[in-house]
């Protein structure tokens, strides 16, 4: 076929010429991304199996040692340290996702029930904070939870915290920060699917004398499955890699995988182990994606074809 005259958009040309032009156009971007992204990402996967040098450098001696360390064994024997960090990260991401869904689902209905001209405004209201830098929002939480602020005052008088102390660093503060950070990304996909909901199916479920729970499950939840899935993914995966919020609101002892990675690339200067933690993060995200797809496929076979 090469060399034969083609007509594309009314212009006589040949395949090699078209490809030549196309390659020129995409070359810059792909070269850039190749050098600064694709190659380094591949390098990271290799780095995860390298060894830390004596003075912090990288030695290209390949080992499973980093994985073993992440699982808890190091030269001093077994410790729960890393296992705890991994477990805490998974747990935090899961609970954050559940909390965001619990608040975000009602919010999606709430917005969808408003008159059309209000909906855009409310959506903007919810999306605007997500455009404010995360550090500033987390810093704002620190201030809000400060020792002399009303929230702390109430807690102090209820005897929940000692007199004169702030509400951070605490686990609860981390959850507040996480939910407020992730909530916009939960609401948006949920809203798009709630807005397209077919309410006749809900009515039908009610007519069949289904209980409230059954009506919700078969009439509403099944239809919102794609949005629910997107919301879960968009909340869970960024939560998993978070380190700013835990660092600023959770204190030095509340470590997540993100903090672990940051430490290895920072003060600990152990890049291979940091890369291993990073690799684990990516794999955990992929497993989560795959698991959620399985769930959605099991939950929505009857809803297929209606879209």
């Amino acid at each position: 076929m090469a060399g034969r005259t083609l007509i594309v958009d009314g212009y006589l040309t040949t395949r090699p010429r078209l490809y030549g032009r196309g390659t020129l156009l995409i070359l810059g971007a792909f070269l850039w991304m190749g050098v600064f992204l694709f190659a380094p990402l591949a390098g990271l996967a290799v780095l995860a199996f390298a060894t830390r040098g004596e003075y912090g450098g990288v030695e290209w001696t390949f080992t499973w040692g980093n994985l073993v360390r992440l699982a808890g064994w190091d030269e001093f024997g077994f410790s729960w340290n890393h296992v705890q960090i991994v477990w805490r990260s998974l747990w935090l991401a899961t609970v954050t996702t559940v909390l965001c869904l619990l608040i975000g689902f009602p919010m999606a209905f709430w917005i969808a029930a408003k008159p059309a001209r209000w909906r855009g405004l409310l959506l903007a209201l919810i999306m605007v904070p997500s455009c404010v830098n995360l550090v500033i929002r987390t810093y704002a939480w620190q201030q809000f939870l400060g020792a002399q602020m009303p929230a702390a005052w109430v807690a102090q008088h209820l005897g929940l915290v000692p007199e004169g102390s702030a509400l951070y660093p605490t686990v609860a503060a981390v959850y507040l920060g996480m939910v407020s950070c992730m909530l916009p990304f939960t609401v948006l996909p949920l809203y798009t699917s709630v807005e397209r909901l077919d309410w006749t199916l809900v009515e039908a479920a009610r007519d069949l004398h289904a209980g409230r729970l059954r009506t919700f499950r078969h009439g509403i939840l099944a239809q919102c499955m794609p949005g629910l899935l997107a919301a879960t993914i968009l909340t869970f995966i960024p939560s998993l890699g978070m380190f700013v919020i835990s660092d600023m609101l959770g204190g030095a002892k509340f470590l997540l995988i993100g903090n672990l990675i940051q430490q290895q690339f920072g003060s600990m200067n152990d890049w291979p182990f940091g890369a291993t933690a990073g690799l684990f993060l990516v794999l955990a995200s992929l497993v989560a994606l795959w698991g959620l797809r399985l769930v959605s496929e099991r939950e929505t076979p009857h809803a297929r074809g209606r879209r």
Binding site: L102, I103, G104, P106, M107, F109, W110, I111, A112, A113, L125, I126, P129, V132, R137, Y139, A140, W141, Q143, F144, M149, L176, V179, S180, L183, P184, V187, W199
Partner: peptide
């Protein structure tokens, strides 16, 4: 669509509060 339970509104306002109250506090 009009018969939304009342708690849905409350939960939604809770969400809005969580989003804005720290920013307001700093301001």
């Amino acid at each position: 669509m009009s018969r939304l339970p009342r708690w849905i509104g409350w939960a939604s306002w809770l969400g809005v509060v969580i989003l804005y109250i720290p920013l307001l506090a700093v301001a």
